[in-house]
Design a protein around this nucleic acid. Sequence first.
DNA 1: CTGTTTCACTTTATTTATGAAAGGAGTTAA
DNA 2: TTAACTCCTTTCATAAATAAAGTGAAACAG
Lengths: 136, 136
Amino acid sequence: MLDQTDRHILDELSRNSRLTMKELGEKVHLTGPAVSARVAKLEEQGVIEGYSIKVNHAKIGCLIHVFITVITQSTYHQPYLSFIKTQEQHIINHYKISGDGCYLLECTFPSNKELNDFLIALNEHANYKLSIVIDK
Amino acid sequence: MLDQTDRHILDELSRNSRLTMKELGEKVHLTGPAVSARVAKLEEQGVIEGYSIKVNHAKIGCLIHVFITVITQSTYHQPYLSFIKTQEQHIINHYKISGDGCYLLECTFPSNKELNDFLIALNEHANYKLSIVIDK
DNA sequence: CTGTTTCACTTTATTTATGAAAGGAGTTAA
DNA sequence: TTAACTCCTTTCATAAATAAAGTGAAACAG
């Protein structure tokens, strides 16, 4: 399905997705149109789901980065899920997991106050374990 | 430091970082060169750390997506950190955390076999708790 | 009030990249 | 051998990026 060149393309685009097709072509030893066709194919196949930027959260005022393991008390998760939908400004990722909890949340907050407010609100729907990111 | 237009730019580029400067300009009501200058500034300031792609790991043969909370037994973390460096093909993110463990690993594996091999090797340096991602 | 500086933006013109079309090389199968 | 297919390169018209020059508004000193 994917050959070595495709993997090389994914690797290069992961590092820098704003390369021009010409530059990308040089890196993987193809011409612009050839690499452009391969990238289009990878998009169609759903291998490339999208193009994004890495934002430094600290520099936009979100200094606190945490992972929250959520353990819902009730088997009925809907109130929790509805609550999460209202908190999109804080949530980077939300996973359903099997293991130590039901969900894993990755969030950022400008300060401990917002984190605390969030945890108080979350606690109405679920228990949690908090892990604060010190370094990446 | 960041005004409303900058936030709008970050928002649009998060959705699609391959927009042309002209298209991005239209979205935020600026001309191409103007928005290009702002993006360059955001890069210099370190707000934009890089441009990347979202890859569908399942489609490239990495079907298992896990989070591993690592609890090192010894206070000397170097052997663990050296081990992690040898496992880059599996590791998406690696965080130092405060809370329920010392580190949080986000990894993908083609199958349970590779995951098991990884856990056996990891267990020589640290204890762990495993959370398997069911859905995002 | 006037002149100067600064800043962010627009406009213009040149360079550069994109994307469509045509064609060639290698592979496979009839 | 020939046909069909895939994947690539080359070529060229179109579109975008970028550099440079110019505009206008705000801040500020004389």
